[in-house]
């Protein structure tokens, strides 16, 4: 009997955090022009100490304006999608649930398309419209998924799938009306793309990320019981309606956030929680932080590959996650079986 202790949790998170920093460092290094990390560190040190006023322009341009924001965006999106996936898997009691199953990404895509049609030239229009679309879908599916005043997992899943299909139909219709240019833009957006810089300062995005993950984390112990069954969880003292609502809102906000800034990157939300379960167990007190860190690692790694493998051609990051993710998952699955 080895129950989870704060110490073990800290150790696991520390290790994964270290791995993430390592991946980020590698990602910083590679790109159109390789950056010498040691030189960068030395310059940073000099700046910190005050020897030189600023880093020589070359590094700064690439690292701070192009690569670091993209890497940070990757961390954000990876963490958001993975935790959302883990949350939905518990909420819907379905191991195949991913962040998009309830239609949030279709709502965001619809928002983005409408912004292209109606407000073409405003700079922030697309991500804001996407988030608004996501928010409306979250509310609509919530009301569709209620029975006797509380969320019913089965009804929610059906309501979400139906909403997603409906929205996809609307999107397909609208896409035929788009001009060629907008069509290409939205097609790339739908595949998932980290190359567009974030619409608002990274600080705000990470704040929302932290709040949503934190909210879900407060229900982590309850989620472990919820997985045994709602009745059982209730008999063990879990406030099931409240937990379901918190997880639904938290996971949906995370999905909306990720999709608004980077389109719908697939497979991460579905696969990362399962891989983390295989490595570290199904306890949600561990699963949530490891999913966040694991998702960040996967997206940053995938994005680095996507932008360097056949440079200068850029591959969509969603394609990388699918190509690299599925075999990895298969490998882990086979190792687990006797």
């Amino acid at each position: 009997m080895k129950p989870l202790t704060p110490k073990r949790l800290a150790w696991i998170c520390g290790t994964l955090g270290g791995a993430l920093l390592l991946v980020m460092a590698i990602s910083l290094k590679f790109g159109a022009t390789p950056v010498s990390l040691t030189e960068l560190l030395v310059n940073l040190w000099r700046v910190a100490v005050g020897t030189i006023a600023e880093i020589p322009s070359e590094h700064q341009m690439f690292v701070f304006e192009l690569r670091l924001p993209r890497i940070l965006l990757g961390v954000l999106v990876g963490a958001a999608l993975s935790v959302a996936g883990a949350g939905f898997q518990a909420l819907l009691r379905n191991p195949l649930a991913d962040p998009y199953v309830l239609g949030v990404s279709s709502g965001a895509a619809l928002g983005a398309i409408l912004s292209l049609i109606l407000a073409a030239n405003r700079p922030l229009a697309m991500p804001l419209a996407a988030f608004a679309g996501a928010a409306v879908t979250i509310a609509a599916v919530y009301f569709l998924g209620r029975r006797s005043g509380e969320i019913d997992s089965y009804t929610l899943l059906l309501g979400g799938i139906i909403t997603a299909s409906f929205l996809s139909g609307v999107i397909m219709f609208l896409m035929t009306t788009l001009s060629g240019r907008d069509l290409r833009g939205i097609a790339f957006w739908l595949m998932g793309d980290l190359s567009s810089p974030a619409p608002v300062a990274a600080g705000w995005l990470f704040a929302v990320l932290g709040l949503a993950i934190g909210a879900i984390y407060t229900t982590a112990a309850d989620l472990n019981l919820l997985l045994s069954g709602e009745q059982e969880a209730m008999h063990l003292g879990v406030d099931v309606p409240r937990v379901k609502l918190v997880v639904y809102l938290g996971a949906s906000v995370l999905t909306g956030l990720a999709v608004s800034v980077s389109g719908a990157i697939g497979y991460v939300g579905l696969l990362v929680p399962h891989v983390m379960r295989m490595l570290f167990g199904s306890d949600y007190r561990v699963l949530i932080p490891t999913s966040a860190l694991g998702g960040a690692i996967v997206i940053v790694a995938a994005d680095t590959l996507a932008r360097t493998i056949v440079s200068p051609t850029q591959l969509p990051v969603g394609a990388m996650t699918a190509i690299a993710g599925a075999p990895t998952f298969l490998y882990l699955l086979r190792r687990r079986l006797p």
Partner: peptide
């Protein structure tokens, strides 16, 4: 009966009883 979604060991299952 139990309807568990993900593998759980017996001691973990019993520990769930301490949740309240």
């Amino acid at each position: 009966e139990t309807s568990l979604l993900f593998p759980v060991r017996a001691w973990e299952y019993v520990l769930q009883g301490r949740h309240p």
